[in-house]
């Protein structure tokens, strides 16, 4: 079980969190102007890196807040967590 540092509450066990996929995807402000291909890209296409991955977690059974984490997908080491809206460090 991972230990995840919630930027609001501190280090907590993984069981308190829910995973919410890749970080820094912004919903297009005017989806109607996008082609089907561009919209599908936004909907479905995700990074699948070996190594550093920016992803969203939610401290569901804690403060309830979403935040971002940089996790290494090969070692599960979490380099840093940061709040929503902040740029990746």
């Amino acid at each position: 079980m991972l230990l995840i540092p919630c930027p609001y509450c501190g280090e907590r066990p993984e069981i308190e969190f829910s995973y919410s996929g890749q970080a820094h995807l912004v919903r297009p402000p005017r989806p109607a102007e996008l082609s089907d291909e561009a919209w599908s890209e936004y909907l479905y296409v995700r990074d699948n890196p070996r190594g550093r991955h920016a992803e969203r977690w939610r401290h569901l059974r804690g403060c309830g807040r979403f935040f971002n984490a940089i996790r290494d997908t090969t070692t599960d080491r979490i380099a840093v967590t940061y709040r929503m809206g902040e740029p990746p460090p």
């Binding site: 829910s18 919410s20 919903r27 969203r56 939610r58 569901l60 309830g64 979403f66 929503m84 809206g85």
Partner: peptide
């Protein structure tokens, strides 16, 4: 509720 919180916190803060 989780979906609502997601949009509230991350898309439309």
């Amino acid at each position: 509720l989780a979906m609502m919180e997601d949009y509230r916190q991350t898309e439309w803060p």
